[in-house]
Design a protein around this nucleic acid. Structure first.
Length: 88
DNA sequence: TATCTGACGATAG
DNA sequence: CCTATCGCCAGAT
């Protein structure tokens, strides 16, 4: 399964505090438009920094807001109302 | 090959 | 801000 390998490669190069969207991961992994499939991978793997991935609007992962917020805050990311505040 | 599913994304109301 | 739709992708059935 090359897809998962590509996604894993992209996520492994992220550092603490770096947040990306599902769409960006898909694109950078060489699978533009496969944002949804990225979510499937993150939901079925245990060893990936899933908390550094948010929706296109900066919303935290549905159903994991609390845990994700804790992890992100611990890395210095600003989280407000289950939403990540980026440079833009 | 046909369908269904889901931690998505954009748009409309 | 929320729900409803529709389009999209990779996997599982």
């Amino acid at each position: 399964m090359a897809f998962e390998e590509d996604v894993r490669r992209v996520l492994e190069r992220l550092g603490p505090g770096e947040v990306v969207t599902y769409g960006e991961v898909a694109y950078e992994a060489g699978h533009p438009g496969a944002a949804r499939a990225v979510g499937n991978i993150l939901s079925s793997t245990e060893d990936l920094p899933w908390w550094r991935v948010v929706t296109s609007e900066g919303r935290l992962v549905p159903g994991h807001e609390e845990q994700q917020a804790r992890r992100l805050l611990a890395e210095g990311v600003t989280v407000l109302g289950h939403r990540v505040i980026g440079p833009e």
